[in-house]
Amino acid sequence: MSAAATLARQGSPLREFWRGYSKSRVAVAALILLLLILAVAIGAPLISPQDPYDLKQLDIMDSKLAPGEKSATGGLYLLGTDDQGRDMLSAIFYGLRISLGVGVMSTVVALAIGIVVGLISAYAGGWTDALIMRLVDLQLSFPAILIALILLAITGQGVDKIIIALIAVQWAYYARTVRGAALVEKRKEYVDAAICLGYNPVRIVLRHIMPNVLPPLIVVATVQVAHAIALEATLSFLGLGMPITSPSLGLLISNGFTHLLSGKYWISFFPGIALLVTIVAINLVGDQLRDVLNPRLK
């Protein structure tokens, strides 16, 4: 068989990947759901029935309406309203935007830091490596929530502060993963070849080792976004996360907590469902990505 025929049979790498991915119907459904959630989060200002943070659009007479009730002026509140008369559906759309934004942003920055530190650690070796890895060990021996709590107790509330806390929690994990993968790559012959060619170490690390370390890491990062979102929600619920001016899903749930005992479940319930669906969708997509990209399962 000629090389061209083999290529035609296998298709492009992307098509090959999709064939592996679409084997699981659940994973495809999860991917569609996730794209939908992303679309809602990005397009929140366009599709929300009202701007929940524009006080002119809120009517205090509409506060704490049950799902499906109509407002005094005739508008329908599909998921009810909170104590300010805010439409819960719109609040959830905007909340998704904030939760996803914080989760993705902190993961991307933590990933970048983890890659740099991990590569330095693997390539430098010696006491630099020992020092960095002891630090990573020390941090990873404590649960993420405790580290985030300590940091937020020190720095106080704020969007920037919670992103910093989430980065601080995640970087060590990536650093360790990158270092492990890079150490394996470092021993391979293509690296020896690059050294023989006289390339400088920075080039070898960035152009030769990093591309081989990256794919498994991206899978890990996908699942980590879900962890980051859940952690942010938890911290916001404890009152140490997002400020009241940027209500993430966690803060919405926390707001509803006070009304839960009087039977007004919807203020906490629906943001929680939105959070749950987002996390499950990300986890399912991440699981399938791992299976498809894992060379050992091929």
Binding site: T234, F237, L238, L261
Partner: peptide
Amino acid sequence: FSLPTFWVGLMLIMIFSV
């Protein structure tokens, strides 16, 4: 694994207490 612990707690309260 996916359910946020604090939200499950709230739902437990809602169902079994309220």
